[in-house]
Design a protein around this nucleic acid. Structure first.
Lengths: 220, 220
DNA sequence: AGGAAGTTGTTCAGAATTGAACATCGGTAT
DNA sequence: ATACCGATGTTCAATTCTGAACAACTTCCT
């Protein structure tokens, strides 16, 4: 394998995102560990290789909102690339043990600039993420908190992979669910029990979501 | 100027986005004209050169929501690049006379792939847009409709340019404002009058926003 | 086992929001 | 001018949501 070929290999996205190097280090995280906090200086991008990460924002009034749950293959803190905002706009916390690749801003810019394949993957990622956030926004514009909860549960059920008709959802407190859909915990508790009575979900230790929960979202 | 130099020139983003060519045409639009509609086949991206465009979504229940107001320098319909979703997820309507560059999907992919500078500009655009949508979402998670209206008016006031302390906002019906912040027209009417009585805004034919409106957004 | 701490089920009064109705006020087409 | 139409101001009952409280239940620690 000649040098040129090795160089090219090194920059296939999958390869790049799995290897350390100049400006790239792997960071292992314990459950509950903070990756960065709202207000921190923002000079690196992360790529999730293992585990799950929660993105939250805290308002002036001190309320906390969860704006995204990210998993394997997602980027994190990518806003810093555009360098408009040199501060983290949200807090990122690992909600399971996790492993992330930390890429310094300069390195990220360099690679984006020099490697077509990587750049392509990243653009696709941004477009997908964009679409998802936009859907969340539309959800808020149209739906009641009951429907938003139903939608969130359905999305979480698909979170890992292609869905079996009933899927188990990772442990998640009602408090967090409330933060995600923008309501209060008591409301979440109320609706969860409603869904349970109607047979849309089940739980004792694990939470499983039936496809029948779709009725809540789809019905006028 | 040799051929190579001309070729390079042609792909500086500003140049590219101003010129027609294979897979690129300029489309002139009258006020109220539709660029694409929710559900249409999605095979091109647009770049706004002149005018303003409204992006709306219609829910199953038939309600309409305005998810973005885009101006010069914004892209439109870019989700089709990732090709995950071959259908338009929203409707785009020119709200002033406008001029947009229509770029076919294939051409867009080609240029993104071949032209570093263009790709860089586009990534920056996506990151900015991402941040903006996310802010909109956070706004919904935290704020009451009164604050959301105030925020929207302030953003509209900045819409064109760097802000004079008081800025005139383009004509915009209360109905549209209601769609943007996710509430009812009567609520918008109510708050608009409140803001007026408090001296935060003024209007007879034109609507001007004072910086004092910030108080509404900033106060606990 | 015995807390301590966190999570969940439940209730409720007060606050905010919705949806619909009706009156008013320019425009503007005939 | 008259009639019509869209946009706006205003009201109100019904609905939904918030915020706070308290008890019951789990988990985890020692």
């Amino acid at each position: 394998m000649n040098t040129k070929h090795r160089l090219k290999q090194a920059f296939l996205p999958a390869t790049f995102l799995a290897k350390t190097g100049i400006g790239r280090t792997i960071v292992d995280l314990k459950k509950q560990q903070t990756i960065f906090a709202q207000g921190d200086a923002s000079d690196s991008v992360f790529y999730i290789q293992k585990g799950r990460v929660k993105l939250t924002v805290i308002s002036k009034a001190g309320k906390e909102a969860t704006i995204a749950l990210l998993g394997v293959g997602n980027f994190l803190g990518e806003d810093c690339i555009a360098a408009v905002q040199p501060l983290r706009m949200a807090t990122a916390v690992a909600i399971t043990a996790a492993s992330v690749l930390r890429i310094e801003r300069k390195e990220m810019v360099r690679v984006l600039h020099n490697e077509k394949l990587f750049s392509e993957v990243f653009v696709t990622y941004l477009l997908t993420r964009n679409a998802r956030i936009q859907e969340d926004l539309v959800d808020h514009l149209f739906n009641s908190s009951e429907k938003r909860l139903a939608r969130t549960l359905l999305l979480l059920a698909q979170f890992g992979k292609e869905g079996a008709p009933e899927t188990v959802i990772p442990k998640m407190s009602q408090e967090t669910l409330a933060e995600m859909i923008g309501t209060t915990r008591s409301r979440v508790s109320f609706f969860m029990n409603r869904f349970r009575k109607l047979g849309f979900i089940e739980y004792n230790g694990k939470l499983s979501v039936h496809s029948s929960l779709l009725n809540v979202v789809l019905h006028d």
